[in-house]
Design a protein around this nucleic acid. Structure first.
Lengths: 194, 194
DNA sequence: CGCGCGATTGAGTAATTTCAAATCTAGTGG
DNA sequence: CCACTAGATTTGAAATTACTCAATCGCGCG
């Protein structure tokens, strides 16, 4: 699936754009490719864009004391990623975004997003809904983080992304779950036994 | 500040509505009063509305095994609260919303929200931005939950809501921070000493 | 063959939880 | 005004859990 069609379908789930409208919208995106390990946003950056993942996997994360990494989310195809706090407030990035695998993505600047939202009511609606789902996902994750133990979060993660487990190093999984890799290692051993 | 003016000002921070437009919008809200302890949404409910807090304080929370309570957020005046997952997906509520104090609020049904969003592009924009800020806040909280210890989260909470500490029972504070009330109690003792 | 990196294992330590008991506080009725 | 009760808060001590740090294992690559 190429970037254009993927975005087309993704938007179509929320609002119906005519072909011309979509062409106009699409013209405001910039297709980009990155290699595994490259950074799209580093902490401290000024953030001007958000990214729509076409292929591959991104992670958004935060480093404490330059020591421990915490992963807020993995972004798979059709997901969006950025430091939205920085993007909307103009502050410096407090979270980084980089490539877990080689990725193909579409870049949209905040400027273009606002332009499109003004031009087309339907685009504004699309972004409202997209953000809504993001909000719901963030709350779900917060809740899962607060109220369930590591064991359960691990199960949930495997259920949600069966693939992730295969190509993502265990220390990243641990950083997503919020435990040390040693603890994670011990967890899925006892799981395998059961 | 009465409900109408508060909502007016709140919206004005994002978009400029004419008086007639605002009157039209306001007509879709229902002013309501509740007493401390009353539930606006109980887990398992079908959710049809969201709430704009005019006065008082709400909490959104989840109960595990009917035993432990985890508070996702406190909603103060000009904040919105609901189970947005339930509201947008039609599923049953997984989080409850109830009154920490006596509250005055404005109820907006999902139906009316969508109607208004269709009628006025600016209202759609308002809700996009509102949800954006909610999304950012949720991520901030997730990050704070993952990467900082209880002690720091406690300090942050006090800084963010100096008032909260006075009228909210400690067990709710503990449920917000994600620790037992015993641990919280021990924490702010050693803090007082320092 | 050996190096290097990710993953695992072990042992000791630090922090939080749980459960139980003691203490405190505000509101009520006598 | 005081005693009393219910709910909230604090304290203590044992048990659990994850963490750290260090050592070992396993495997791919030069």
């Amino acid at each position: 699936m190429d970037a254009k069609h993927l975005l087309r379908q993704h938007i179509a789930k929320t609002v119906a754009l005519t072909d011309e409208q979509f062409e106009h919208v699409y013209a405001h995106f910039e297709p980009l490719s990155y290699k595994k390990g490259q950074a799209l946003i580093a902490e401290g950056d000024v953030v001007t864009s958000e990214f729509f993942v076409v292929q591959g996997c991104l992670k958004t994360f935060h480093l404490t004391n330059e020591l421990k990494m915490f992963i807020l989310q993995f972004a798979m195809p059709t997901w969006w990623a950025s430091d939205y706090q920085a993007l909307y407030s103009g502050q410096r990035a407090t979270v980084g975004v980089d490539c877990v695998t080689d990725v193909e993505l579409l870049r949209l600047s905040a400027e273009n997003r606002e332009k499109l939202c003004h031009e087309l009511h339907d685009v504004e609606r699309f972004f409202r809904w997209r953000t809504n789902w993001g909000y719901v996902a963030a709350h779900k994750r917060l809740l899962s983080f607060m109220s369930t133990d590591v064991r359960q979060r691990y199960e949930e993660l495997l259920k949600q992304y069966p693939l992730l487990y295969q190509f993502v190093p265990k220390n990243l999984i641990a950083a997503y779950l919020g435990v040390s890799r040693e603890t994670l290692s011990r967890l899925y051993q006892s799981r395998h036994e059961a």
